[in-house]
Amino acid sequence: MDWTKIIWALLLGAMILFLWPRAKQMLKHSPKAEKGDWQAVLLPLAFVVGFVVLLIMMV
């Protein structure tokens, strides 16, 4: 096996271990979304999707 794959795997494993407690804490303690909050996120993200599709068509 390519030695770089092993190092990448170790690096990704370390990142997962590092983020796991933070993610658990944030999932528990993040404030809950109010009405209209997700809409305010999905609208700009839809623009990003459209823009990326446009970039793909350009290249």
């Binding site: 944030m26 993040s30 404030p31 979304a33």
Partner: peptide, 20 residues
Amino acid sequence: FSFMGGFLMAGLIVVFVAML
């Protein structure tokens, strides 16, 4: 946008697992 924190962190972990 602080309500997205948990969702984004969980998303990052899923991406790292998929990368692995």
